[in-house]
Nucleic acid binder design. Structure first.
Lengths: 213, 213
DNA sequence: TAGATTGTTAATCGATTAACAATC
DNA sequence: TAGATTGTTAATCGATTAACAATC
């Protein structure tokens, strides 16, 4: 039996997967753990250890076959499955993300947008259908939307999450300034990304530089 | 001598700081580690441990004084110092961030924008001065800009970073799909945030659910 | 063969959690 | 006083790093 995969490893495997797409475009046949490590910013041991969670995939002496490794990672992590997503909060940031179609390489598709401001909805020009936030539960359920990206003001984030969960959402990327966490009985994955908070963090690291490595 | 502060702790202290701003607005006088923990999604022990890196600030039995704790965190992490920042890459995402002035509560100020496309620059309506990317080094240096946010395509990220570092930048938030790392001799903090990669990560977590807690 | 590179084990490192004495 | 809550120590947990035998 293959053991549980640690979260940091899952994260790196996702990065490796993206990298392999790039190598495939360049028609590279094989790649070594050293080459991968240099690109994603970790040591070659880490890369080998991470990949070893998927089984024995490499060839001693010559490295990994690009297409084979990509297939293994994709299958194990379910990265080849198409996922439907929605954006909640159609301010500048939300609209920018909704229309960033190019970055959704392959398996993600934004199928709906939501905003509390009905007047704003009328002004949005896009192929993607947009709805008022009161329709979240019904729309998410009807379209079997699995993931959501939150770009609403921090104070309304918690309420929106409740509705998304009510509609059966499976994962949420929270770009609001609020820190959200799923309560015990709810099986939803929440990833908090606070871009502006990140400025503070960098600023703090800089202040503490020296004493802190 | 106070020991080195771990990175996860620094990150949480930043979150606590934001929270304290909120409590201050609500005119709360004191707050307990339990209350803080509930809001940032960690246990009360973690909160106490984190705060204890700053010294003995709380009062046994009644918790922490909001304003006192905020002052301590702010001073130690340098969060009260005003920082100048710039945005490189003025596509939809970059413009959205540049104009998100409201979220820059207090200590961050975006003083410049850059884009490689000179025609695009002409069309941008904003109070913030914008420049072609070839002016990065000179502009960053002249204005003593400390932080940069990168919203350029992945393939040009590395080249832009070189210029930013050439201008003396201290921290970079990288929102491109490329994973960047500072080489040994460069003292710059880089934070990689791949919003679209995060979708993959969530999708993988969901796929592995059950076997992986 | 000789050089390269994997997969795995063991050692190290660092962070989180638990528990509790101290005390307002 | 009794209840609440801190700061700290010790125990646990998990991830990273180092090293190397195996082998193409």
């Amino acid at each position: 039996m293959v053991s549980r995969i640690p979260k940091p490893t899952i994260n790196r495997l996702c990065k490796i997967y993206s990298l392999l797409e790039e190598f495939e475009d360049k028609a590279e046949i094989t790649v070594s753990s050293k080459a991968i490590g240099e690109r994603i910013g970790v040591g070659s041991h880490s890369v080998r250890k991470d990949i070893s969670y998927l089984g024995e995939i490499g060839t001693v002496g010559s490295g990994y076959e690009v297409s084979k490794l990509k297939t293994h990672i994709g299958q194990r992590l379910g990265l080849n499955v198409e996922r439907k997503a929605c954006v909640v909060g159609l301010g500048k940031l939300g609209r920018a993300i909704m229309q960033h179609e190019k970055l959704f390489s392959g398996n993600f598709k934004i199928v709906a947008g939501f905003d509390a401001n009905i007047n704003l909805l009328e002004t949005i020009v896009t192929d993607i259908p947009v709805y008022p936030t009161c329709d979240i539960i019904e729309t998410v359920r009807r379209n079997a939307i699995e993931f959501a990206i939150l770009t609403v003001p921090g104070h309304s984030a918690q309420e929106i999450v409740k509705r998304l969960i009510g509609g059966g959402i499976k994962g949420i990327i929270n770009l609001s300034s609020a820190t959200l966490s799923a309560s015990m009985n709810e099986s939803v994955f929440i990833s908090n990304i606070d871009i502006f908070g990140e400025f503070r963090f960098l600023s703090a690291l800089f202040t503490l530089e020296g004493e802190n490595k």
